[in-house]
Design a protein around this nucleic acid. Structure first.
Length: 855
RNA sequence: GCACCAGUACCUUAAUCGGUGAAAGGACCGGUCUUAAACACCGGUGAUCCGGGUUCGAGCCCCGGCUGGUGCACCA
């Protein structure tokens, strides 16, 4: 009697070893003669003409060990990869590591261990665990962004952008993290002004830095969202981040100094209500404007104070408005009025032109400021005007919102223009908006304009463990790109990683001092490194052609795989990574290196895994370790559980009891299959279920086909939880009917269960399929449901009276509506309820019910 | 404050087009097996957030409210 016990610790390594030995998940590039030759020599089984599919999970940052979120991400991605393969596609499913970054560097500062050493350890540990999870990765394409063979091409892309004018240096007020001692991208500062990485309060410093011109792509990044299949909330976040506003640029002239100040406004229709003018404290002209006025000292103090304020203090809209008069005036171009100039911290330098026209009547913030400073508030849009004379007669005293005075202000809605100009008064404000912009344009005082919240991407970092920026500064030639053939510019060794406000690379003097590639004279290297988001903005391209050392990729190979068909990752990357990767794709396409516009055709964002309802964290001590779970119950249980616990795009709470439940399910499945394999005789391919089967055999065959249909549909819509539940139902029927069905039917039902479940629990399903059929489940085409077995020839017709179920009768599937009505009327308990009443109506839903409405 | 999503049994989820008396797993309770327990098997308890509306019929659609989550929020 062989032991009928499910033992994942024996099953899982056995199949993993086979997959590794046979390079089962590797896929060759079919384009290019060399690739074709490789495919022949490795005896690639898959049909080269099969459609390709690129399934990709976001690349992990290797630090310590993978956590449960990784397990969920790869469980989702692997299920898709397996499903696509079984649908006959050639699937590219690679893995790599986002290996540059601050944690390894901070660790180096603490311990002196070189970041490359600790990173290599983490990568080894990640790789070991990923293998133990049995995910179907093409390991031949593995990469790490910190390897010179990778970052050589990161540098090449940087130089391509530089040569195209998309990478540039400029001095600007930038965000500086005092703890990490580096500048940050605007995107890396959260809404409260804290560093996204370390949580320290971010400061503002005036520094010269490297930027990438992502703002040139704002319109396309916005518009092309329409072309990709992404979750709507992710698209919304990107739209918000790009922050497109339509409006006008209007020029206000300071006659005393003879300087023009353009402002951006979305409401040129309220221009006649502009009663003062406000500049941001950072505005370069503020001090110059105040110079020589009585206000000078006060302005200086205010500006100093404002510049030292944190984003948090300054960003608070609840805070009372502050500001100082500049003692100057500008002219409102539409009516020639001289209006007072102020400096106030509620105006931001980064948005628009750093100066605004203030319309207190129709803008909440301007209104609050005007109240504090006692400035005039003028209504130029009537909130509601009576539409017909009858309305006026009915209401001799108009309610306040109808008045043209200042009551009810500020008012931001639509209405008709009042108190403006005879040419515009009475016009609807939307119509007036275009009329006023047209007038400004004719007079040369303004023009229609579009403004974005998105700002250029600051990519330089004063840190060690990143990709060096391949630029040399020559005393004679200036800024010179390192020639392509000299790439990569490798990271030098340094003794001290501690940041001191400049890059640790600056201390490597032998490395910094170099010769100019152009004139050969003395030159110094750029010592800043790149933001690690640069590394991850193109890695999906490199996987396609990972071993190419003559180029970053061969465009012909990219055509075979790109764009990624299914991208999977956490919603925390909804803005930064995804926006940067889209920008890189568009820029590289413009430079002729790619022939597609969007990198990720379809995106799936998985939900968080929580414990006891809250985020797992070391400080709370509620961290569930994937390694421990896999050790205890096996990878199949861990993976199936995490997909079964709920819809994968939602957060899911980890429960050890739930894990046990799934483990029991896999145990029962394996055990019943092992028993069946014994009683059913030698392994044999599954026989298509016999439509002529009778009784329990027919019932179980039907259930199996129902499960095929259900799981196939559920997989297409990422409903893994219900797919697994369907296989559970199938197993329950197998157990229930195991005494009465033929061995062949049981073999078919259990083999089908294993086949359907294998994307979620590949090892145990491979084992079961092998026991029952002697075949490899991953090489089988995805099963197809037999239509004839999905339909029933008879069913239970529900008989309702006034919407209440009163009886049930057997009806044949093809019975016409008239026959169903008669069946229903004839049902005994229906007759009781219809007795002596008048039939008003009969509703027939074929296949479901008949409802008789009586009075 | 604005927008979006969700609210179903003690818990996590299901119910495809508005159509049966709301389903699965876990938990809990009972039974069989066992010296006893675990495992396994059999059985059981128990739910549509609140208030209106539409409809022959509403968990599902509409309106209002409550609760929770996410995103945005001095962006002119």
């Amino acid at each position: 009697m062989p032991e009928h016990r499910y033992d994942p610790s024996e099953i899982e390594p056995r199949w993993q070893a086979l997959w590794a030995r046979e390079h089962t998940w590797e896929v060759s590039n079919e384009s290019g003669a060399q690739a074709r030759a490789e495919a022949r020599s490795s005896g690639a089984r898959r049909d080269a003409s099969a459609p390709s599919s690129y399934v990709l999970e976001m690349l992990p940052y290797p630090s310590g060990e993978p956590h449960i979120g990784h397990l969920k991400c790869y469980a989702v991605g692997d299920a898709i990869a397996h499903f696509h393969r079984r649908l006959g596609r050639r699937v590219l499913h690679p893995m790599g590591y986002d290996a540059f970054g601050l944690p390894a560097e901070n660790h180096a500062i603490k311990t002196g261990v070189h970041p490359s050493v600790s990173t290599a350890e983490s990568i080894a540990s990640f790789q070991r665990q990923f293998r133990s999870w049995g995910i179907s990765i093409d390991w031949s394409r593995e990469l790490a962004t910190s390897e010179p063979s990778y970052y050589r091409w990161t540098q090449w892309i940087f130089l391509e952008l530089f040569r195209a004018g998309l990478a540039y240096r400029k001095e600007a007020a930038v965000k500086w993290c005092p703890k990490d001692q580096t500048v940050l991208a605007n995107e890396q500062v959260d809404a409260d002004g804290h560093c996204e990485r370390c949580g320290a309060l971010v400061e503002v410093r005036q520094l010269e830095q490297w930027f990438l011109r992502i703002t040139d792509y704002a319109e396309r990044l916005l518009g092309d969202l329409e072309t990709i299949s992404w979750p709507e909330h992710v698209k919304t976040m990107q739209r918000n981040w790009i922050g497109r506003s339509e409006g006008a640029e209007v020029t206000f002239r300071c006659e005393e100094l003879g300087v023009d100040y353009p402002v951006f406004t979305t409401r040129p229709d309220t221009l006649f209500g502009a009663t003062f003018f406000v500049m941001a404290p950072e505005h370069p002209d503020v001090i110059r404007l105040a110079a020589g006025t009585a206000q000078e000292q006060q302005v200086r103090e205010y500006v100093n104070h404002a510049l030292n304020e944190t984003n948090e203090e300054r960003g608070n809209a609840e805070k009372p408005k502050t500001g100082v008069s500049l003692g100057r005036t500008v002219v409102n171009p539409v009516n020639g009025e001289q209006i007072q100039m102020y400096v106030a911290d509620y105006v931001l330098m980064e948005y628009g032109t750093g100066a605004i026209m203030a319309v207190p009547g129709h803008d909440e913030r301007d209104h609050a400021f005007a109240e504090v400073f006692g400035l005039p508030i003028r209504r130029v849009i009537a909130q509601r005007m009576p539409t017909a004379p009858e309305d006026l007669l009915k209401m001799p005293v108009p309610p306040p919102e109808w008045r043209e005075g200042a009551e009810g202000l500020p008012y931001a809605g639509d209405g008709k223009l009042v108190n403006s100009d005879p040419n515009f008064d009475g016009m609807g404000n939307r119509e007036a908006l275009s009329a006023i912009v047209a007038w400004l344009d004719r007079e040369g005082k303004g023009h229609a304009s579009i403004n974005y919240r998105l700002r250029d991407w600051l990519v330089s970092r004063q840190r060690y463990w990143g990709c060096p920026i391949p630029i040399v500064y020559c005393e004679r030639c200036g800024m010179v790109p390192v020639p392509d053939e000299q790439l990569p510019v490798e990271l030098p060794e340094v003794d001290d990683y501690t940041p001191k406000g400049r890059s640790p690379l600056a201390a490597a003097e032998d490395w910094v001092n170099t010769s100019c590639p152009d004139c050969g004279g003395a030159a110094k290297r750029e010592t800043d490194t790149m933001d690690t988001f640069v590394d991850s903005s193109w890695y999906f391209l490199r996987y396609c052609d990972a071993s190419n050392d003559a180029a970053a990729w061969d465009p012909a190979v990219l055509r075979e795989w790109m764009p990624v068909d299914q991208y999977i990752g956490g919603v925390e990357h909804a803005i930064l990574h995804l926006l940067y990767a889209r920008f890189f794709t568009k820029a590289l396409a413009d430079l002729g290196h790619l022939d597609f516009q969007e990198p990720f055709q379809s995106l799936f964002t998985q939900g968080m895994v929580t414990k006891d309802g809250s985020k797992m964290s070391k400080s709370k001590g509620n961290v569930v370790s994937p390694a421990a779970i896999v050790e205890r119950v096996g990878a199949d249980t861990a993976r199936a559980y995490i997909l079964f616990v709920g819809p994968p795009d939602q957060d899911a709470d980890w429960s050890d009891e739930g894990v046990e439940g799934v483990h029991r399910f896999l145990s029962r499945l394996w055990r019943l299959a092992a028993e069946t394999a014994q009683s059913a005789g030698a392994p044999a391919p599954l026989q298509p279920a016999d439509i002529g089967a009778q009784g329990d055999d027919l019932e179980l065959a039907r259930k199996a086909h129902w499960a095929i249909d259900k799981v196939s549909g559920d997989l297409r819509r990422f409903a893994f939880n219900t797919a697994i539940a369907a296989v559970m139902e199938l197993l329950n029927d197998c157990s229930r009917l195991r005494e009465t069905v033929s061995p062949e039917t049981m073999r078919f039902a259990l083999g089908t269960a294993a086949s359907l479940l294998s994307p979620f629990a590949p090892h145990v399903c491979a084992d079961i399929y092998d026991l029952l059929t002697g075949e490899r489940v991953w090489e089988q085409p995805w099963p197809e449901a037999e239509e004839a077995l999905l339909e029933r020839d008879a069913y239970e017709l529900v008989c309702q009276v006034n919407g209440k179920v009163r009886d049930r009768v057997q009806a044949s599937a093809d019975a016409p509506a008239e026959a169903l009505k008669e069946l229903c009327r004839a049902a005994p308990n229906v007759q009781v309820h219809v007795e002596g009443k008048e039939i008003v109506k009969e509703i027939v839903v074929p296949g479901k019910l008949v409802n008789i409405v009586v009075r």
